[in-house]
Write a protein that binds this DNA or RNA. Structure first.
Lengths: 260, 260
DNA sequence: ACCTGAACACCGTTCAAGT
DNA sequence: ACCTGAACACCGTTCAAGT
């Protein structure tokens, strides 16, 4: 499909390129838009190129490969997670970070899928992890506990949203939405002698609000962490640095970190 | 690539098909083998057909589409998770189920990826969920709590293993393993003024055994659940059915459930 | 420096035709 | 009933050639 050649080379000396050359950021922005509209299935190099008015091969001037695109998108998404408020207790800070993290992920179609498909080594994902680890350190956990708890925290949020987002299937087509497989009634019709427990709790299992379910798991996890902290403190009292103290370090880091 | 025609139609009346016709189970078994050897990337309809000595189009006589294959594989994997021992306390039962579940998933390449890409509605996945819900009900949680806790439990195990399995990259090639990206030393070389906390706990973050990390998160979660149970019990004492009592129900279910 | 055309080596899936 | 051949509509990626 050749586009009409510019007459500039024949008649006069107007600029040959009618559009500013692509930049890496344009590609990432367009890819994120495409993800939101078409999902991870629709995010192909060819679709992405079309959206940028360019051939697919051109993209490889700006990114290494598709994995690269996904990794950049993932980091761009996480960039929107606000940094924790240093005035909060470690528990409040962790809780609000989890809630904000989930909220940001839910803001982009298949976001959790992109995150789990991709190494968490971009600057914003490292930033988030560093903040979480900072909160845990300020609470007084040992380095070993900080590493475990930080990992678990991340796994919990992304794992939860991954399930949550793969619930709602691909289609925006209104007809398909109607005849869409209804898990609720299907679960209730399961043979009660084989799946007595599922049948018994089918109702909350299906229409329980995901917000509340998330809060339930998060609170349970935080309770568990708090218990470990108290146990360690009563065994050998080791005072936690105050959150205000570590916050200075983290505010300094925020200033020197690249904003995007 | 036409194979040599059987001479049977020319000379005598030997059976025209040299190989027994494929069955659905053969396809699933072969797909699981292929997954283990080639990973989810290598699990293509064409590779699967080749392994079965057949053209790709033939597979569609036995399965609807590739999603179907993945769903069947997922259920076949989960079939190997042993059912909880009814003599254990709810907490011990939940813990050992989690450990066994993870162990089974780690036994197949990209297993967690297959699980999260697929609806959990096969008989063995329903069986597992029913058992988990049964354990929680026997502990005395409300139906609402049972639904939340059961969901969280599943999300925790699969989410953890998903992270765990995507750590180890694709390659078995020894040369690639050598020049493989070394996260450990890379993390330690991060600018300490920006990522002070990551640098501080880089060591446990990288070489902490995954078994211990899993146990840490699991214990924290179970502590949290136990706390909720005690809180509810002291507010309005509602005796839990004994595990032994519900175990009869579950043993009955086990007998009537299809074994595979 | 950036983009295009064309190709390569793949995908999942359908369907008429064969036995 | 099951399988094949051939095709369709896609993929990601490379590379010589153009400007």
């Amino acid at each position: 499909m050749p586009r009409p050649k510019s007459p500039s080379t024949l008649m006069w000396d107007a600029p040959a390129r009618t559009r500013a050359p692509l930049h890496r950021d344009d590609v990432v922005r367009a890819a994120l838009d495409l993800l939101d509209q078409a999902g991870i299935e629709g995010l192909t190099m060819r679709n992405l190129a079309e959206r940028l008015g360019v051939q697919a091969a051109s993209l490889y001037n700006h990114i290494r490969d598709k994995r690269d695109v996904l990794t950049l998108i993932a980091d761009a998404i996480v960039a929107d997670v606000p940094r924790p408020d240093a005035r909060l207790s470690w528990r409040e800070a962790l809780k609000s970070t989890a809630i904000e993290y989930r909220r940001v992920l839910l803001g982009h179609r298949d976001a959790a899928r992109v995150l789990t498909d991709t190494p968490p080594l971009g600057p914003h994902r490292l930033r988030l992890m560093d903040d979480v680890l900072g909160i845990l350190r300020s609470a007084g956990f040992s380095n070993d506990e900080v590493a475990s708890a930080g990992w678990i925290f991340n796994t919990f949020v992304t794992g939860f949203v991954l399930d949550e987002q793969s619930q709602a299937p691909a289609s925006t087509d209104p007809a398909a939405a109607q005849q869409q497989f209804d898990v609720a009634t299907w679960l209730k019709q399961l043979p009660a002698d084989q799946f007595a427990n599922i049948v018994a709790v089918a109702e909350p299992l299906v229409d329980q609000p995901m917000d509340r379910r998330f809060a339930f798991g998060l609170d349970a996890l935080l309770d568990g962490l708090e218990g470990r902290l108290r146990a360690a403190a009563s065994a050998s009292p080791r005072p936690a640095r105050s959150r205000a103290q570590t916050s200075a370090t983290r505010r300094r880091a925020a200033r020197s970190a690249p904003s995007r």
